[in-house]
Amino acid sequence: DAVRPAAAPPVLPSAATDGAAGGTTGGPGEPGGTDGLDGLDVPSVDEWSGEVGRALSATSWPELDPSIESVLDGTRTGSPHLACGDAEAQGLTPADCSWTSPSASTTVVLVGDSTAMHHLDALVPLAESAESGFTLVNRAKFACPFVDIRVQNDVTGILESCRAHNDETLALIDETHPDVVLVTNSYQTLSEDGGGTITPDRWSEGFGAYARRLAEAAGSVVVLTPPPDDADIASCFRRGGSPVDCISRTSRTWIDRAAADQDVLESIGGVLVDLRVLTCVSDLCPAFVGDVPVKEDRVHLTTAFALAVSPVLGDLLRARGVL
């Protein structure tokens, strides 16, 4: 599993020279491998990485907005978009879960599970900006990884619901031919219903089945990686304690899942964007950046972080040719 640093401030390499996940050697998803930029010069990402580095060097918790306490007790302002993760049950129409601008000429569809849903607060402002040029359509759904595998979940009826939702999403993409499909699935350890832990090969098989269909119908297929699944803010945070206790690192499961996705994408001409460039420096990932907490649990981004990082994400996706 992931290795947490000792309770002392980490010694950090320069963000300007090492990027968000280390140097420039190694495979996709590998700590010390890709920096998420593929050699591109994106000044806003460099500036953001500086903020991440400063957070990693902090020895005490700053005043955050929202506070960690309000994130943990649920009193902070929630996202207005998360209801789209269960749209049918919430009585929402497709139009309620689509966002656009007057300049829109292309369509982007978001698919995946709850980790995709927590990217919405960063993506919606991009879609709604005057010059965005695209319409964003949400087809992500809570507890439903976009993969042709029955992923174990104890919620009654969720396996059948997820299968039906993913089938409908594939049919919609077949029919509408969007320009871009964005995919985000959890990189946590998952088990197959009635089976054991899902191996990288099994994941490649299951994601590959969907990805090949997407490639036939959409202009491009892009995986946006989820945050590393490590430190849980509910367990590591202590007022008066050190934020070093809440630093996350990338697990072996995360690395293997990212590599499996990369292999699939290479076979269809797709793109993997390693979003650790927005949350980590040299595979050290702080619990806050600037004055906002990053995650509300082990893996889901806070609304405040998603909103704060939105312009930087937009620059990164444009630089990578995604938008």
Rank of each mutant, 00 (worst) to 15 (best):
V3K: 04
V3R: 07
A6P: 04
P9M: 10
P10W: 11
P13G: 04
P13K: 00
S14F: 03
G19E: 01
T25G: 00
G26I: 09
G36S: 07
D38I: 05
G39P: 08
S44W: 01
E47D: 15
W48R: 12
E51Y: 07
A55H: 05
L56V: 00
E63R: 14
E69M: 09
E69G: 11
V71G: 03
D73M: 12
G74I: 03
L82Q: 12
G85H: 04
G85K: 02
A87F: 01
E88H: 06
L92P: 07
T93K: 00
A95N: 12
C97G: 07
S101P: 01
S103M: 09
S105E: 11
V109A: 01
V111K: 02
M117T: 01
H119Q: 15
P125W: 15
L126H: 13
S129A: 15
V137Q: 05
R139E: 15
R139C: 08
A140K: 11
A140E: 09
K141E: 03
K141V: 08
A143H: 13
P145G: 12
V151N: 06
T156F: 05
G157K: 12
I158D: 12
S161I: 03
C162P: 04
R163A: 14
H165P: 00
E168F: 01
T169K: 10
T169E: 14
D179Q: 03
V181F: 13
Q188Y: 14
Q188N: 14
S191L: 13
S191M: 14
G196W: 13
I198G: 11
T199F: 02
T199D: 05
W203F: 15
S204N: 10
E205Y: 13
F207Y: 11
F207C: 07
G208A: 08
Y210I: 00
V221I: 02
V222D: 02
L224N: 09
P226R: 14
P226V: 13
D229P: 03
D230L: 04
D230T: 13
A231V: 02
A231M: 11
A231I: 00
D245A: 12
C246R: 07
I247N: 05
S248W: 04
R249I: 04
I255C: 02
R257E: 10
R257W: 15
D261K: 00
D263R: 07
L265M: 05
L265Y: 01
E266S: 10
S267Q: 02
V273R: 06
L275E: 14
L275F: 11
R276K: 12
L278G: 03
L284S: 04
C285E: 09
F288Q: 03
G290H: 05
D291C: 04
D291M: 05
K295D: 14
K295Q: 15
D297H: 06
R298M: 06
V299C: 04
V299Y: 10
L301N: 10
P311V: 09
L316E: 01
R320A: 10
G321C: 07
L323P: 06
